[in-house]
């Protein structure tokens, strides 16, 4: 049992990260698309489409942080100092865009908070990409503590990951808008989504080629037998889903483009898991090296087994309560 605990916890945290990326991804995406809206009324409507959900969505980020602390305290205490500046800037960006939800309609002009909302969303997404890129390329560890420099994470690769994530979240946001709005906003979101899908696929392709070329352990993981026999379907499925999403965008489907984008994200995430597992702090520490005491993981697991179904249940309830399209001219404030 004890050897499996870290695997279970890696699964739970992986699930939380995936939930966060998808849920906060689309509401960050709305912010990223803010500069491209035609009028402030459109921006109002875009924001209304995510307003009831954003608090709950960001809670997954808090859970990601707390979950790491609970289950893998040693990884938590290495990754965060290593990514110090991107983490801090991401958090501050989230502060700005988060309060914009409440402040925007209270201001003399709504416009005043449009810029911080957009800038905060873009910067938060970009920093999350930097952190991801920095983590994939590896962290310098000595004696179980971070031993690198302040800017170790800053490389062309991590910058590329930053741009990819901004683009990916924007795609999630655009397909969300297709599903939740109609009229001019939906049409424009559809145009944006096509461009963004193309750009995101290019980014995904570059990352997929770059990582095995630059990092031997990743090349070995994917391109040796028998591994390749188990993983070849991931890029194949990605191509298939991408094609389908494109078709759905072309044929005017409402909800399917969003679902297709989510699947693209999940496949990308799966690819990263294949590349890095079982390392939590590549290239040196595995999930077993960094795990908390079994008693801690078990105690928390009991709570997670009870609470996760409940959390998912009421999350669905709230999304259902606020289902349907946001009507034109029916601003929330």
């Amino acid at each position: 049992m004890e050897a499996y605990l870290p695997i279970i916890w890696a699964g739970i945290i992986g699930f939380a990260v995936a939930m966060y990326v998808i849920l906060d991804g689309f509401d960050l995406g709305i912010g990223i698309l803010f500069p491209f809206a035609a009028t402030e009324q459109e921006r109002d409507l875009m924001m209304n489409s995510v307003a009831p959900f954003w608090d709950g969505n960001e809670t997954w980020l808090v859970f990601g942080g707390a979950g790491m602390l609970v289950a893998f305290p040693r990884a938590y205490s290495i990754i965060l100092p290593a990514m110090y500046l991107p983490v801090i800037i991401m958090l501050l960006s989230l502060v700005f865009r988060g309060v914009a939800f409440e402040f925007r309609w209270l201001g003399v002009t709504a416009k005043r908070w449009s810029v911080p909302f957009a800038a905060g969303s873009i910067l938060a997404a970009f920093c999350q990409g930097l952190i991801l890129g920095g983590l994939i390329q590896g962290v310098k560890v000595e004696n179980g503590a971070f031993a690198g420099g302040t800017f170790d994470w800053l490389t062309p690769f991590s910058l590329l990951c930053g741009c990819s994530l901004v683009c990916g979240y924007a795609l999630l946001g655009a397909t969300w808008l297709i599903m939740k709005t109609d009229g001019a906003i939906e049409d424009r979101a559809r145009d944006h989504a096509k461009t963004l899908l193309a750009v995101m696929l290019i980014f995904m392709a570059i990352v997929s080629v770059w990582t095995p070329l630059a990092i031997d352990r990743i090349a070995e993981r994917w391109f040796t037998l028998p591994n390749f026999l188990f993983v070849w379907w991931i890029p194949a499925a990605t191509a298939l889903v991408a094609f389908a999403t494109w078709r759905w965008l072309e044929t005017g489907r409402e909800a399917l483009p969003f679902i297709g984008t989510i699947m693209l994200f999940l496949l990308g995430f799966l690819g990263l898991v294949v590349s890095s597992f079982p390392y939590l702090v590549p290239p040196s520490l595995t999930i077993w090296d960094t795990a908390a005491a079994p008693a801690t993981q078990i105690f928390m697991l009991m709570g997670a087994l009870i609470m996760f179904p409940i959390i998912i249940g009421y999350t669905i309830f709230v999304y259902w309560t606020f289902g349907g399209k946001v009507g034109e001219g029916e601003g929330y404030h």
Partner: peptide, 26 residues
Amino acid sequence: TGNVIGPMIGYEVMVAFFLEATFLGV
């Protein structure tokens, strides 16, 4: 202290924070 403090913070998020943030929407 992570082994001991961690679950308390974890439970806070899991039991309370999700509940508040989600039902605040309602």
